[in-house]
Structures are given as structure tokens and as C-alpha cells.
């Protein structure tokens, strides 16, 4: 199978380039990550992040034939050849397929991604009805892989100012939690021309999410909350 992979090593001082690989895959090499591990066993200089190899840790996000996805849950069968692999767009490249995710995590941290509840905790659990808990479904499952945020043109233009779909999805995760008491503060924190409102609902994020989540819908719900509290 043929691959064309983005290579860049600042330690060598070269410009980035695309390197071609032609590799014979075994029948057990079903996913793109298996193929990359096989390539790496021959060329150990190819650098990428990977861990769980089952789509829950979010390490091996990359741009695969022009679309963001996780290598470990992308079947190789059916990929157009040569398979073109590039680092996630819009973030600085550290080396090869490894990007610097500092800005992505800064935006995540900026939404105060933790439950805020100032009541003294009860002896047992705080109660939450199944319906209230269901509000978190499709939201809490985010794996912070950055496929969505780095597929978003608004993030490409304003990565320092626009929270991005992943961060906003998590903002909604806490706004939607019946146990959280900081709703007003959370909305204030997003009431800004850039942080929330740079989202123009083009839905690249929904298309990119390897977990089938819908950040655009969550962003819409945050916008509704903003409107509701002003009227």
C-alpha cells in the first residue's frame, strides 16, 4: 500500500516535505495505525503519537486524505492511494505528524472545565434524575483529540480568541449539568464577539468528530441560553 506522509524535523533544519512509502501490509493490519506502526518498524524516524489504539484516548488524530480522523479507528481498506497523511491543520508542527496542542488546551482550560457547586457536599451522592443525566450524553464523551477544532476555519483564523468546537462542547457539558451552579458565570465568560460567536455553524466539526458528537448543536444551545437570559 502506498503512503505519502508529511515529514518535518526541526533538528535537521530541513524544510517540511512529503515522503513516499510503499509497504506490504499483513492481514492483521486493519487500521491505519497498524500500517503506521509497520512503517515505523522499518523507518524508526517517523514520529507520531499513539496510545490506546481503540479510539478512546485521542492521541493519534491526524489529517487523512484531507479529513481529520483517528488513525486507530480508520480502516485502511477503502482509503484512496497514496494515502496522504499530514499533521492536524492549524496548529504548529513539532515534528512529522505531531502538533503542538498548547493553544487547543488553553482554550479548553479557559471555559473552566470542572463542576462548580459551592454547596457543602452531602453525605452521599448528589441526586440527578436519569433525564437530567441524559443531557450530558453526546457531550461528556469528548476525547479531546482536536479533530473538530482543527477542522474549523474560525479556529484557524483566531486560535487565541475563539474557544473552538471542542472547548465549547465542554462548556455546554457543564452548562447542561444539573449539579453545576455557575451557569451565569459560564455564559458571561463566553459573551464576547470571538469566544462563542465566531462559530458560523458550518459544521466542519460535526463532520470531523470521530466519536460522532455534535459540537455545532451544543454551540447552538449555548447561543439559545444567551438569548433566553437577555429577553
Amino acid at each position: 500500500m502506498r503512503f505519502s506522509i508529511y515529514r518535518y524535523d526541526p533538528d535537521k533544519g530541513d524544510q517540511p516535505y512529503m515522503q513516499d512509502y510503499d509497504v506490504a501490509l499483513e492481514p492483521s493490519d486493519r487500521m491505519l495505525l497498524d500500517a503506521l506502526v509497520r512503517i515505523k518498524s522499518v523507518d524508526d524516524s517517523l514520529s507520531l503519537r499513539r496510545s490506546c489504539r481503540e479510539g478512546v484516548c485521542g492521541s493519534d488524530a491526524m489529517n487523512i486524505n484531507g479529513r481529520n480522523g483517528l488513525a486507530c479507528i480508520t480502516p485502511v481498506a477503502g482509503l484512496r492511494e497514496p494515502v496522504e497523511l499530514r499533521p492536524l491543520p492549524g496548529l504548529p508542527v513539532i515534528r512529522d505528524l505531531i502538533v503542538d496542542m498548547t493553544q487547543f488546551f488553553q482554550q479548553y482550560h479557559s471555559i473552566k472545565p470542572y463542576l462548580i457547586n459551592n454547596d457543602p457536599p452531602p453525605e452521599t451522592e448528589r441526586l440527578q434524575s436519569p433525564a437530567e443525566r441524559a443531557e450530558l450524553d453526546g457531550v461528556y464523551e469528548c476525547i479531546l483529540c482536536a479533530c473538530c477544532t482543527t477542522a474549523c476555519p474560525s479556529f484557524w483564523w483566531n486560535p487565541d480568541k475563539f474557544v473552538g468546537p471542542a472547548g465549547l462542547l465542554q462548556a455546554y457539558r457543564f452548562l447542561a449539568d444539573s449539579r453545576d451552579q455557575a451557569g451565569a458565570e459560564r455564559l458571561d465568560n463566553l459573551e464576547d464577539p470571538y469566544r462563542l460567536f465566531r462559530c458560523h455553524s458550518i459544521m466542519n466539526c460535526v463532520d470531523a468528530c470521530p466519536k460522532g458528537l455534535n459540537p455545532t448543536s451544543a454551540i447552538g444551545k449555548i447561543k439559545d441560553m444567551m438569548v433566553k437570559r437577555t429577553v
Partner: peptide, 23 residues
């Protein structure tokens, strides 16, 4: 065990719920 699980719930862990609202 009970104490540390309740603590996780207080930290915000999204446990599934029973009809009565418990974990």
C-alpha cells in the same frame, strides 16, 4: 469504597443514574 465514589460524584463525574436519582 463508598466514600471515594461519592467524592468522585461530587467532583462532577457523570455516573449513570437510577430512577431515584442515585448512582
Amino acid at each position: 469504597a463508598n466514600e471515594v465514589v461519592y467524592e468522585l460524584e461530587h467532583f462532577g463525574m457523570p455516573f449513570d443514574r437510577l430512577e431515584n436519582g442515585k448512582i
